[in-house]
Design a protein around this nucleic acid. Structure first.
Lengths: 147, 147
DNA sequence: GTAAGTGCAAACGGTTTGCAGCCTC
DNA sequence: GAGGCTGCAAACCGTTTGCACTTAC
């Protein structure tokens, strides 16, 4: 052991506690925003903590699998990751600057359950994401806007 | 069948009225289900109405652009298309057999609008898809299920 | 010491694009 | 006749995988 953080918390992170794994977790921990694997990969390299792209993907996958990280597919087909929040919620994402607001929707949750039940569907999950222009970006778009 | 609907409705389909374009539209018209571009491409070839894959993608894109076709990205990152229904609605999709049920959610619509407004977001759109096991597939999965 | 983790690069799968020829208007 | 449309195949882009090496435990 070299003195890092200590190798005791390994069990929960869905795999061995390696420098790379920790780097990825740390990167996710550092922000509330959704990050793409490539984004994280680049940030890590810049941080002087280079980790292979494939390794980033594998670590992310492991974390998602372990339920520690949330994954959402953007409209571009890109996967973005974020430290998991224990409470189920959805996201209001600015399609211009990417700023994200967490929103919880008991209303929606109940609705989906009801609808699923009405149609006899079981084990139903749902994806719900809101995309729009945040206050800042909205004012910047307004002026020249038409239609 | 060569005397389909007639070549008069060209203007609305977002481009020139070619055999290929019509074939794609006809294929979409033939079903209520979501189809992938590749699926349509193959079906067309089997139908004796071969259309290039790229052409299928371009036609689909044009149709989506014209608001005649609905596009949804699956969890696999594949895009699936479907003739557009004038009324806004969401989908309850069986993750096993792909069977799709249309669901409308005034409740959800209102909720998204309210949430967006609360956060000052403008021009908000939302994606909401429900995935589960339809009644048929549910019974088939139940028996041996564990974990 | 052993098996999991890592890195590289090639493979992959869906989608897009360049370009020469065809066809609709 | 002109310009959009088509087809092929190669390019793309994000993601996954094979394999030999490294490293945590």
């Amino acid at each position: 052991m070299t003195g890092q953080t200590g190798p005791q918390q390994a069990g929960r992170s869905g795999g061995r506690s390696t420098r790379q794994r920790r780097a990825v977790v740390a990167e996710l921990d550092a922000t509330d925003q959704f990050r793409s694997a490539q984004d994280i990969h680049e940030a890590l390299r810049r941080n002087g903590d280079p980790v292979g792209l494939a390794t980033v993907y594998r670590a992310l996958q492991t974390l998602v699998d372990a339920g520690e990280v949330d994954i959402v597919k953007t409209d571009d087909g890109e996967a973005v990751y974020r430290q998991c929040n224990p409470t189920h919620h959805h996201h209001l994402v600015c399609r211009n600057c990417g700023n994200t607001v967490e929103v919880t929707g008991p209303t929606v949750e109940r609705w989906t359950e009801r609808v699923a039940a009405e149609h006899g569907f079981h084990d139903v999950s749902h994806t719900l994401e809101l995309f729009g222009l945040c206050p800042d970006c909205a004012v910047r778009e307004e002026p020249g806007a038409a239609t």
